[in-house]
């Protein structure tokens, strides 16, 4: 499955890009699996996702938790806790 990943704020800065399209192996089922997989892609990903629990995730622009399955996702966003308002 190929999916578009988008990154914001310090997640974007540490990974060094705002978005990318990657192919996912069928063994990557949940958001948590995806985060663990991304951490193996290089030290910039490891730096961005070091504190995996604080990373917020949206699938197709809706907030999800780390246990959510990613099947059917066309856009997955990773970002820090929000600081708007």
């Amino acid at each position: 499955m190929s999916v578009k990943l988008v990154y914001f704020a310090w997640v974007r800065e540490r990974i060094g890009k705002g978005e990318e399209i990657i192919d996912l192996a069928p063994s990557i089922v949940t958001v948590g699996d995806l985060l663990s997989h991304l951490k193996t892609r290089g030290e910039e990903y490891e730096a961005a996702l070091e504190y995996q629990d604080v990373i917020r995730v949206a699938i197709n622009q809706e907030h999800v938790d780390h246990k959510t399955p990613i099947g059917g996702a066309h856009e997955i966003a990773l970002f820090p806790p929000m600081t708007g308002g």
């Binding site: 310090w10 600081t83 708007g84």
Partner: peptide
């Protein structure tokens, strides 16, 4: 609700020119 769920992030740029940082939630 906006503060917690709306996808916005604030980065501070300082007068001193020191490295700017992201505001923590």
């Amino acid at each position: 609700y906006l503060k917690n769920a709306a996808p916005f992030w604030k980065k501070e740029h300082l007068v001193s020119g020191a490295a700017s940082g992201w505001v923590e939630a």
